[in-house]
Each structure stands twice: as C-alpha cells, then as structure tokens.
Design a protein around this nucleic acid. Structure first.
Lengths: 73, 73
DNA sequence: AATAATTTGTCCGTATGTATA
DNA sequence: TTATACATACGGACAAATTAT
C-alpha cells in the first residue's frame, strides 16, 4: 500500500517504518531493495528514500551495504 | 553552441531540444551520438545526457538503439 | 573466432536550488 | 524560520552488452 500523504508523519519516517516491518517479518530475503525499487514502489523521490536510509543508518539498523541487519531491534 | 547554464530550463531539456532539432534537420546521418560524444560536445555529465535520452524515449522520439526515429515529430 | 576497447545500464554518493507546509 | 519533499546536476564504480581489432 502507498504511503499516506495526509499523515503528518514524514514520508521518509513512514518508509523507514515500512522497511523495519519487512525486515522483522523476513520479507526481504537478501538485501533491502535499491533506492530505485523503493522509489518505484512507493512513488516517492530518491531524496526521500535516502532520508529513510539515513534515518535507519543513524539508528544503527542499516549497514553500509544494506544487509538486513537486525541490530538492536 | 554550449547550453545555457543561466537559463531556468534544465540542461537535459535544452539538450533534448538540440537533439530533436538536429534530427529534424538531418544533422545526424546514422544514429544519435553516443553519451560520451554528447558529454564532450556540451560539457555536461553523463547523467544529464541520459536524462535527455530518457525524456526523448518517454515522448516516443527515441528508440532503444537510438536510431534517428522521427516518430510523431 | 577470440580478444580488446567502447558503450551502455544500473546504482550510489554528494551538492544545490526550489517549493511549501 | 525550519523541516520536508522534489528536481536537477555532478561524479564514480561496476557489470553487461556491443563494437572494433
């Protein structure tokens, strides 16, 4: 389902939450999808995808190469 | 002549227009020039050249192998 | 046919400008 | 004014495909 543009929660936070959910549920077999794939799936810009990645990285939930690291979850 | 960096029209749109002009005037005998050639001619990055190609493709003016197709011009 | 060089496709890192809530 | 979001533009890296030798 698409992100909620009417929600006051920023899109990049919504995306961050979606990614965390899917990681927890093992939806992503190998890595988290590429920026391009997430852009296409959620109809958002690359910048916004990158903001979500930045947030995940800051929280230690995402490694440099975007393995599905479950650090401190 | 070089593209106009002071123009608010994006470089990739300016390039797209240049290519369309040259196609119309038969300047390109065989194919549209390679990415590298356009980079060197207009002093722009490869990404920008590719954006121009993407725009031309979206508008149905450029085929996969960049033949000078005059579709709907 | 086989190899080398070029071209293209894809992805990522970074920076800047604009618009808007 | 700041935070959010998007568009534009640069660059680099690498693999795959194409072309030249």
């Amino acid at each position: 389902m698409p992100l909620d543009y009417t929600n006051s929660v920023p899109l990049y936070i919504q995306l961050k939450d979606r990614i965390e959910e899917k990681v927890l549920h093992g939806t992503y077999t190998g890595k988290v999808p590429s920026e391009r794939e997430l852009m296409d799936e959620y109809y958002i810009s690359r910048s916004t995808v990158r903001q979500a990645f930045d947030a995940l990285t800051r929280e230690g939930r995402l490694s440099k190469n975007r393995e599905k690291e479950l650090l401190s979850l």
